[in-house]
Structures are given as C-alpha cells and as structure tokens.
Simulated scan of single mutants.
Amino acid sequence: MLEKISAVKHLSDADEVLQNYIFRNLETIFTLSAREIAAQIPCSPSTVTRFVRKCGFDSYHDFQRYVKNEVSKVAGQGMTDTISLEGIFVNQVFAENVLEQVEMVSELLQQSSFIYCVGMGSSGVMANYAARKFNTIGYKAMHSNEPYAPFLSTQMKEGDSVIIIFSTSGETAEIIELVRLLKSTSKHIISITNTHDNTLAKLSTINIPYYIENQRLPYNFDLSSQIPTVALIEYLVAFCFNKK
C-alpha cells in the first residue's frame, strides 16, 4: 500500500518526518491541505509540496486522490469520487454550488424506495446510463425514454420514489407535460438541464444546471455534448455509494 510514497529514496530529515506522519494518519491525511500538514509537523507548506513531487505526483490534489484510493481499497470500499467536479468543472461548466446540490440529491435518493430516470433522445441515453449505475451500487432504479410509459401510471404510486429527468433544453413538450402530472403527486423531481433558465428547472424540486453551447442541426438534430451529464452521473453515483 502507498508504494509511491514508501519507495521514495534519498529523503531529507524533513522528508522522513513527513513520510512517517502520512503513514500514521492515513485515515485523515487526504482531507488536509499542505498548509494544515505543515502546521502539524511543523515545516513550511513548500516542504510538503516538494515531498509530494518527489513521490511522483504532479500536484498535491493528485497525492490526496492517490491516498484516498489506496485507503478505500484496504477498507473494502472499492469506489471513490473518481470524477473531481471541483477540479474540472466548477466555475467552468457547473454552478459554484453544484457540490451542495449533489449532496441534497444524494440525501433524497438514500431515502427513496425507487429511482426513475427519464429522458428523450440523447437525454434518454443518459437516463439509461444513470439507472444502470444506480442499480450497480445497490439502488433500485429503472429508466424510460418514453415519458408516457405504463410504469409511470402504476409504480409511481410509491410515495418515496424520486424522479431524475434529463433534458438538454428543459423545454421538451412531452417532458414538461409529464412533470406537471407528477407535480400533482408530490414527487421529488430532480432535473439536469443545460442552463437553469427553463421551464423544467422551474418545476423541479432540485435542478442541477450545466452551461455549454447548444449545438443543434436543421430538423432539430441535437449534437450538444453530454460530457457534463456523464461526469455528473459518475460523481453522484460515487457520492451515493460512499454515503451508504
């Protein structure tokens, strides 16, 4: 375990102290900043970052992720937040509060008896992918790319079910009609849309928007990227798994 850290040679006295501190605090070390570790040693934050580079990491964040992954393997968790939204997308594609939104959605999903993932077209593919991932980590989930599928009128009677709706525009007529129907049953509706200024977002319990350029061809063919949606699904699933 932690071969990249234990295999470093030609350590200075300060490096040896840091190495020992890391191995004595494996459960918390990846939650601490370089400045916080330096204060515990004590040493300068630059000493910590230099040691991290000696271990072969490009950044302190890579070091934290490596340690977290290694500790998770030993603990038998086997899954970590492999998509780092805060490092990749925040302030670029997602809103600043996206991590808070993910946590709120996670709490709703943990309390639910069933998760319904709905979308049409390319968003329907995302709904399928999300349901598959949730089933993999032990949640009961199903998907539909037909907003009027029979299950919506039968199993939707479960009071603690949650609906996750994927829609790039947030204005698809069939989806809006479905959501208005579901609103009358007091269901929790989570929507994932491109921008927050659309009808679906306003009708949702929680909306997680992303912000990329729409790419639509004649006859309404949609080539808009689904990469932000995939990243969000991956992060949400990992977050839910680690909270179970």
Score class of each variant (00 low, 15 high):
G76M: 12
I41K: 04
F239W: 03
N69H: 06
N207S: 08
S161P: 05
A127C: 10
V179A: 11
F30I: 07
I137C: 00
G78Y: 04
I165A: 06
K202V: 00
H188W: 04
L203V: 07
I22Q: 05
G76Y: 06
Q111T: 09
N145V: 05
I163Q: 00
L181W: 12
C55N: 05
C55T: 07
T136I: 05
L217C: 13
S72T: 12
V102E: 03
M126W: 08
S12G: 06
A130D: 07
K157H: 15
M79P: 05
Y148N: 12
T80L: 02
Q226Y: 07
F30T: 08
L181H: 14
G119K: 02
L11C: 11
F221E: 14
S123H: 04
I206W: 04
D81L: 01
S204T: 00
N207L: 00
Y129N: 15
V93Y: 12
Q110M: 15
T154D: 15
S44H: 04
P150W: 05
N20K: 02
L178M: 10
N97Y: 15
N97V: 10
I206V: 08
I212Q: 09
A238M: 05
Y210L: 07
F166D: 06
F166Y: 05
Q19T: 00
H61N: 14
A231V: 12
V162A: 00
